[in-house]
Structures are given as structure tokens and as C-alpha cells.
Design a binder for these strands. Sequence first.
DNA 1: GTCTATAGCTAGATAGAC
DNA 2: GTCTATCTAGCTATAGAC
Lengths: 187, 187
Amino acid sequence: MAINQTRDDMVDSIISVFRSEGYEGASLAKLSEATGLGRSSLYHHFPMGKEDMANAALDRLGILMGGDILGPLAGPGSARQRLADFGAKISGFYADGRQPCLLDVFSVGDAARLFQDRLRQTNRAFIQAITDLAASTGASPAEAARRGEDALIAIEGALIVSRGLASSDPFRRVLAELPDRVLGTEK
Amino acid sequence: MAINQTRDDMVDSIISVFRSEGYEGASLAKLSEATGLGRSSLYHHFPMGKEDMANAALDRLGILMGGDILGPLAGPGSARQRLADFGAKISGFYADGRQPCLLDVFSVGDAARLFQDRLRQTNRAFIQAITDLAASTGASPAEAARRGEDALIAIEGALIVSRGLASSDPFRRVLAELPDRVLGTEK
DNA sequence: GTCTATAGCTAGATAGAC
DNA sequence: GTCTATCTAGCTATAGAC
């Protein structure tokens, strides 16, 4: 769309289409419109077509996760402050619960068959980052792992229920309660 | 597929395809193969094509929910026993976490635009059934509503993470912990 | 109620000019 | 690097025989 867009800009547009439409629902027409590029230009950048675009989307998701989103969890500051920063990133990344997660929409159909291994890696990285933080606050390894897994479950589930109810409330509530649940200080 | 199949059998096969492939990924070829009916036979039963099939799937999901799945929650027996029965139904319905939920796969793309209102109703019915049980055990209305919503969030999230990790473990753990979370007796 | 055959379209993908 | 034009395959949907 934008003039002089970088490859990251292109991939961000592509991710947006995959998230909203799913893998099979993301037609080249929609991907073309979102990026502002003609079909042939897309094939110039992604010779293998849609599969290449999805791999580029997963590449970028991995980079965003490892850096901007999960990064705060291992950063400086108190555990509670790091979780607050993380929550803000998550809220923005999922547009207050309105934007689906690629880990969800790629877990059915052709995408599930094509990208199974990559999905597993990204799920693991997410869980591990929360697990590490929980462990650093004194939780046992098993308990920390449980909280890491629960955090991803809660976020993914909240996204579905928020879309299902057409309300951001469940997503916001889950994010608000997340620090206490990770730190084991709920109730 | 089966000889002498009822309409419910047909719709069950259709649901299975929608769950595995998503709305856009569920081609008539796959729906035809799963039901054992030719394209034209499908159009005889569902004149509006795929959209009719999806509506039939949502009709049946509503009936299964209202009866077999959520029914135990309002049945006889202790609250804990009812939750155990419910958990067993959920485990079977989602094939131990391997089968996606229609409320998830229909929440993106064309299906989200077509069936938004129906999805909201079904989400609400699910949450309400758990909420009612929690309220009947003494939880305040607000707390009961929170637990109802959390139960659906946990189940939907666990399905995604279980598929993402290619392991039933997260789904099983969430189901095992669900009674305590609904009854407020966790930890 | 199911079938074969096919229409009409859109999907993903390619060729080649500029 | 982007475009127009086009290919083939698969898609949804329909017609009409049985």
C-alpha cells in the first residue's frame, strides 16, 4: 500500500490478512490489496506463493515474539512491572482482542499440515518465556511450567471468546488478571 | 458414507470437516467425501450450499450443547459430580483435544461475517450453563459469571495450545482442573 | 434422493514486456 | 520491481436423467 514500503511492511500487511481470514481464506486478491502489490509482484518477493508468504509471516511472528513482545519478560524491572509491560504489548499486538492470533488460525486445515513444526516452536517459545519469569520468582519448575502454559491458554482462549461475544471485555479481564496468575498471587 | 444415514449423521460428518478444515477450507469435495454423497445430493439437502451446511452444523451444535454436553451441568447429582460428567462429555466431543471447536474456526474470515450472531448465542449459552452451576453453589452473580467465562476461555485456549504443541496434555490438564476452578476450590 | 455432466467462476500461479 | 495478460486447476453451483 504505502510507497517505499520495506519488506517488513509487506509482511505485516500479509500477517494482517492471514490473521483476519485464515490461511485458506487469505486469497491472493486480498493479499494483493492489503500490500498494494499486484499478483506478480507478490510472486517476485515470494516465489513459492502463499506458502512462502505464510513462512515469512511465521518468521516475522517469531522475531516480534522474541523481541518486542516476549522481550520485556526477561528485561530489567520487577517481575510485576515486566508482566505489566508484556500485557501492554499483548494488548496492542492483538488490537484489544479484535485481531486473531496466527497460532490459532494456522492450527486448522492446510496450514496445520504445512506449518505444524513451526507452530510448535512458537508455542513453546511463548510458554517458555512466561515459565522462566515464574521460575525466577521462586516457583518450582513444574509450577512455573504450568503457569507458562496457562498464560498462553488464557490469552488464546480469551481471543476466541472475545471474538465470539463481539466484546473486548473477556480479553481485557484476562490480561488484567494475568500478572497475579503468573506470580501465584491471585485471589 | 454410511448406508441409510439420517440427516444428523450427515450433519455430523459435515461438522467434522468444518472443524478440521475451517469454513473456507471445507471444500465441497471434502464435504462430499465425508458424507459419502455427491455434490448434487448435498445441494438437495442443503439448497443454499455451503452456507446452509454451516447453518445446519450450528443448529446441531446448539442442540448437542443444550442437550448432551451442557445438560449434565443442570442435572441431578452433586455439583462436583455434574462437572465430572460434563468434563467427560467435553473430552469426548473434542476427541481428547485433537478436534478443533466450531466456535473457534468459525470466528475468522467469511464464517465470522456470516455467523457472528449465531456464534455469540452459542458462546453465551455455554458460559451461562457454567455460570448457573457456579451460582447454585453459592458464588455471587459476578463471581459465577467470571467462572463461566473462564471455563470457556480455558477450554478454547487449551484446544489451541494442544493442537499447537501436538499434545493432548494441556487439554487434559485444563479439564482435570476445571471442577475446582468452577467451584472456587482450586489450589 | 442420488447420480453424471457441466456451467461459470475464482483460485493460485506463470510469461514476458517495461 | 512492477505491470498486463493469461494459464490451468479447483471451486461453488446447476441441469436434468434415473
